[in-house]
Amino acid sequence: CSKEGIMLQGMDEFHISLVEFFLSKRSFESYALCHDLCMSLPIDSLATVLKKANDDDVCTLKAGHKAKVLTVAIETRDQPWLVSKHDVPFIDLGSEYLVISRIPYDAKITVWSTRFARLAHELHQLSGSLDIQIIHEGARFTALDEGSGKKGCFIFRRAKVVDEYRDSEDDEPAGAIIHEFHRYFHKATSLRVSTKYLVHASKRAPLSSKVSVLMKEDQPLLVQYDFYEGVLKFYIAPRIAD
């Protein structure tokens, strides 16, 4: 927790995918912080507690200076006298925390998140890994089923004019990349990643209508959702030729 908001980091047990979730302080009804605070929490316990709250309930998260627990108070909005309190004890994550190096990416594309979710799902049916190539003219997502020899490919062409950008999902131009594309392109880049982890990242489509894919050769793939209250990033470690 910092004066800007809450930053959350989580990683899978094989250290292939890391999630970084930032919630700006503006997404909270009130946000008070005396000093920066770092907590390690078991995500299952936190999720279990938060699921006890209904959509309209008020959740207050509290932790003191040398606290060992995060206290979650759940209050019914129209019955403020009705409060339930739950403690989520901190755990020692030790080496499970990673410091993410901020690197300049060579290429970035932004596509409709529902389309991205569909391509991840479809390619996952074919193969355990896929290749992503971004060249000046567009992007290509390819998966090959080694057994049957079947190859699946989704191609996105760079939008030629800014007008191709539409805010409404219904007006989605077929296969077009939103115009931000060319601004972030430095050189042709390709990466191979596991489709399983891409599917996982693509499931967050309800957060934002657009998703960005950022790449640099031999570096983790970054899948990023920007939304008003914050940003959700998935870093996926690549598969590299032996």
Partner: peptide, 14 residues
Amino acid sequence: AFKQKSLTSFFSKP
């Protein structure tokens, strides 16, 4: 052959 890399080879531990 392709080898799955771990994020620990890219990002450092504090």
